[in-house]
Simulated scan of single mutants.
Amino acid sequence: MNKINILYTGRHPEILETVVRLINQNENWNGFGASSNEEAINLFTTINFTIVLLGCGIPEDEEKQLRDTFAAINPECPVIQHYGGGSGLLSNEIYAALAKANV
């Protein structure tokens, strides 16, 4: 089985590192992190992501740019807001997005 690629983008380096580490603790998931829109879009255009998580600290206009760009490239990929709250909440958000994406 191929791993599910998950992109997390946020502006806080410590949170980004933690979320990607938590994602990668699941043997079926492959987490990637991006700290800027440019980095997130570059990753999104080169890797087939199943889910995108938007973290805190992204200005509203940049979030809109990301959502619009991701939707134009792959409208089937859910983009969900992740505000934190521990690994249990993160896993639940990912499982819910996977169910929504029929994965």
Rank of each mutant, 00 (worst) to 15 (best):
I15F: 03
N42Y: 02
L22F: 13
I41D: 02
L66N: 11
I47E: 04
T9E: 14
A71K: 06
W29N: 02
N48Y: 11
N48R: 15
N92V: 00
I15H: 11
E60I: 15
Y83Q: 10
T18C: 12
A97E: 00
N42H: 14
F44T: 01
Y83K: 06
T9H: 09
A96E: 01
V19R: 12
G85P: 01
I4C: 04
P59G: 08
L90G: 00
A72Y: 07
N30T: 06
I23S: 04
N2L: 13
E17G: 05
Y95D: 04
N30Q: 11
N5G: 13
T69C: 03
I94P: 06
Y83W: 12
E14I: 08
L16S: 04
G33R: 00
K100F: 02
G55D: 15
G31F: 03
V20T: 09
R67N: 03
E93W: 13
N28W: 07
V19E: 07
L22I: 05
Y83P: 11
A97K: 02
A71R: 03
E39H: 10
V52S: 04
E17H: 14
E60A: 12
S91P: 15
Y8A: 08
P75N: 06
G88W: 15
A72G: 13
F32N: 12
N30R: 05
N30V: 09
N92F: 15
Y95I: 07
N5F: 00
I4G: 09
E76R: 09
Y83D: 13
F49M: 01
A72V: 08
L98K: 00
Q25S: 11
R21K: 09
F70L: 12
T46Q: 13
N48W: 05
G86I: 10
P59D: 15
L90I: 11
G10I: 10
P13V: 03
I73M: 01
F44E: 01
A99C: 02
N102S: 04
D61F: 07
Q65W: 04
N48V: 03
I15G: 12
I23Y: 01
S87K: 09
S91H: 14
N26C: 14
G88L: 12
E63Q: 08
E27P: 13
M1C: 14
L98H: 04
T50V: 07
N37F: 13
S87Y: 06
P75A: 10
I47N: 11
T69G: 01
P78H: 01
L16M: 15
C56Y: 10
F44V: 02
G84Y: 09
H82I: 14
I41P: 05
R67S: 08
L89K: 10
Q81A: 09
A71Q: 07
D61Y: 09
Q81M: 07
E14S: 10
G31D: 02
L98M: 09
G84C: 04
L53Y: 01
I51D: 00
Y8Q: 10
F32L: 13
F44Y: 01
A96P: 04
N102G: 04
G10R: 15
M1Q: 11
Y95P: 05
L90S: 00
I15W: 06
K3D: 15
N2I: 08
Q81T: 09
L43M: 05
E76T: 12
G57E: 11
L90Q: 02
V19G: 05
Q81K: 10
Q81F: 13
C77F: 00
D68F: 12
A34V: 00
N30P: 12
T46A: 15
F32E: 11
I6K: 04
Q81N: 05
